[in-house]
Amino acid sequence: MNARALTSDILLGVIPIALAIAVWQGISSFGYAPVTLLPPPGMVFSRLVQQLFTSSFQHEIASTLFRLFAGFSIAVILGVGIGLAAAASPAVNAVVRPIVRVLAPLPKVALYPALLLLLGFGHESKITLVAADALFPILLSTYYGASMVEQKLIWSAMAAGTPRRQILFKVVLPAAVPSILTGCRIGLVISCIVVFLAEMISSTDGLGHMLVKAARTFQAVDMFVPLITISLLGLILNGLLQGLRSYLLRGFPEV
């Protein structure tokens, strides 16, 4: 794709977003909805910018980000580890496969009350929930990528003298990286969503808690601010992951 087409694509993509904001503005400025229900976009964004410089808001973002990263990192470590092990060893596979089959479609939020009871209302329960939710897509795509590695890559490495137990790290893991990163991207979006929800259901800080607090007092403007913030955070994190991806996958053919 050349640069010109790319620019026109981006322009095209901006249209619906601009349109949505225009409709939003229109509804509130023609008085179809009272400000208490739908504050105009200008008000919401200026509130967002103003909040960004307050330390209390920065604190909320920081605690959300901390839980998000902690949970996501645990999910990546466990997911990649278990996924590789399941692809490499038939014994591990026989155990992991049925367990994953049962746990993957289980709505993890339903476990949240149990996590609250067991781990308390602090960081731990939320981090565990994020990790539990982000784990499966990462595990599954690692497993998928690792079991799809071209047999002849493995043979080439073995013929060059790579011992069997090093094959996993020298060939299977790097060859599965594209698939692992796809899983991580899904896992990251999930982490954003889940951390926010967990904070809404029970928390004393974080973006999700901000929304609940605003909802209790019917502050519509303050309800929009955390939602837009999590959307922007997701966008930024996704962009960072995309950058990492294009660096790590510079050798791989495009998909």
Partner: peptide
């Protein structure tokens, strides 16, 4: 390319979190 960016920004928003706002409306 028309819809992609819109979807991109709505993806990380937890839909259930819209509940309080939608309830308002």
């Amino acid at each position: 390319s028309f819809f992609n960016p819109l979807l991109m920004i709505t993806y990380p928003v937890p839909k259930a979190a819209l509940m309080p706002i939608i309830m308002l409306w």
